[in-house]
């Protein structure tokens, strides 16, 4: 059990302690959700739509999201594009290098179940779910920038509802299951 999962257990024993934990949760999750810095990871066609979403007409910066080139400085990875069997270990390594808590958006049909490359392709990893744990899936081939913005807003809502220690429980259940 991580240290942060033990805090609510002890805080509830003190009278009035839950007020401290809920306020702490709200502040931390608000801070995480509104300032997600994403890793530039685009392999194929969805990368062009990701670039367009970060450009002039549909702006990512208004959601607080800035691109970073290094995984050590980012807390969101938007997997945009097909992941092949040769690329899969590199994706896992990039995910492992990110600082916790980290979130994943799987963008496009190829990352959900292989997309148009499900049938007759011998080199495509059919879905990114069995490499890294995914928070939000965005369907489309490629998804419009408005879909990507909606997916990011869904992720922000999901993060704002998280309680202390939820993130660690989720990752542990993924690694075991």
């Amino acid at each position: 059990m991580a240290l942060i999962e033990k805090v609510p257990v002890y805080a509830e024993k003190i009278p009035g302690g839950s007020i401290v934990t809920t306020t702490l949760e709200r502040v931390l999750s608000y801070g995480r959700a509104t300032s997600l810095w994403y890793l530039l990871f685009g392999t194929a066609c969805c990368a062009i739509e990701l670039m367009c979403t970060g450009a002039s007409r549909y702006d990512f910066d208004r959601l607080g999201m800035i691109f970073r080139a290094s995984p050590r400085q980012s807390d969101l990875i938007i997997v945009a594009g097909t992941i092949t069997k040769k690329m899969a270990p590199r994706l896992r390594r990039l995910y492992d290098q990110m600082a916790e808590p980290r979130y994943v958006i799987a963008m496009g049909g190829c990352t959900i179940k292989g997309g148009p490359f499900y049938y007759d392709s011998y080199a495509v990893e059919k879905g990114v779910d069995h490499i890294i744990p995914v928070d939000v899936h965005i369907p489309g081939c490629p998804p419009r920038p408005e879909s990507l913005l909606e997916g990011c807003i869904h992720l922000q809502e999901k993060i704002k509802k998280q309680k202390l220690g939820d993130w660690h429980k989720k990752v542990r259940s993924y690694d075991q299951g």
Binding site: T82, T84, V124
Partner: peptide, 25 residues
Amino acid sequence: GYLHRAIEKMCENRTYVQCIPLMDR
């Protein structure tokens, strides 16, 4: 080879008009 998706093999099992979306990719 990090983006080798076997488009040429896939075209052999699709009709001519079904190959056009693969050419897009």
